[in-house]
Design a binder for these strands. Structure first.
Lengths: 108, 108
DNA sequence: AAACTACTTTCCAGATTGTCAAGTAGTTGC
DNA sequence: GCAACTACTTGACAATCTGGAAAGTAGTTT
């Protein structure tokens, strides 16, 4: 039965879909936590872009930002929340679902 | 060795990344061809959105648009080009590569 | 001849994204 | 002790991008 809003596309998480945020989430998903500078260099974004995108992810409750020191130098650590991890996995599952779209023969 | 532009994110195809176009490409990837109306209903977009997005994919050489008739009613068929199919598969591979980001222990 | 089908195109408003420059807060070098 | 530097953060701003609404096109049916 065909229902409005049933295409998996509607279940994509817009916040995660942007390439930068997707990459940041993927990075954090593979580690308990990561330094701001490490993520910035790995994902290859500017300080300002990472800072702003992380603020959005934090607002959404997907990422936590912890500030501390390494010696006397300030350092910021990023980590996924449980919610963020779930949202990321769900988003990836939806992408796969879309990518694997199967149109039955006869229909087209 | 770490090189500028090496994060897989830079290899995402911006044209394919948009949810609507990604869904359209996925649909076409699973069939030889599909009717405009079929794709519109499956992906759940308006005529105008599908028409515009398809025009972009056509310009890029990813999709071909064939107009014909079923009886006396006009009908439009969409299909991926070989280039479009490759671009789609490459894009999906890059998404998987990002999703599977592995940060070595010790680094973070 | 008016309505309808199957799109296409234009106008437009709102949201997103990135760059660049300036700001903050504390630290180090001369 | 003050200018420079580190590690971000914030603000101003321009460039898209996207989608909705509505009008347009071309041919068909009632």
């Amino acid at each position: 039965m065909k229902v409005a809003g049933s295409h998996p596309r509607h279940r994509l998480d817009e916040l995660i879909h942007s390439p930068v945020r997707f990459s940041v989430m993927a990075t954090l998903a593979s580690a308990d936590q990561a330094e701001f500078g490490f993520v910035r260099d790995l994902v290859e974004v500017s300080d300002s872009v990472l800072s702003k995108q992380v603020a959005l992810l934090e607002e959404a409750g997907y990422v936590t930002v912890r500030k501390g020191y390494v010696g006397k130098r300030p350092r910021t650590w990023l980590a996924l929340t449980a919610t963020g991890r779930e949202a990321f996995h769900r988003h990836v599952a939806v992408l796969q679902e879309i990518a694997a779209t199967a149109v039955p023969k006869g229909e087209r």
